[in-house]
Amino acid sequence: MADSGSALAVFPSLNQVALVKRALYREGVCVEMLRTPKCLSSTGCSFALRCTLRELDAVRNACARAGMAWGGAFEECKTEGGLEYRPCDTQD
């Protein structure tokens, strides 16, 4: 995976996304909140953080510190047909 690529970390709710975003901000990591693309949202509505692939570890660590599990992480890949999402990491 290229470090410059972007990734989405998916969470069940906006409350969790906001909490992790705030924790990352305190560490100097700025990430973006967004609604999870429908194709990745197995539970209907959910929210995600967009970060670089390199920042994904920081997101995972912030989740662990908050005692929170994310719903998966996906690399955003630009294709001719638009954006595609490839699983790039999962929590145990």
């Binding site: 069940p12 709710s13 906006l14 409350n15 197995s42 539970t43 209907g44 509505c45 959910s46």
Partner: peptide
Amino acid sequence: GTGSDSSN
């Protein structure tokens, strides 16, 4: 509604 887990 909670804005989450909406298919549940």
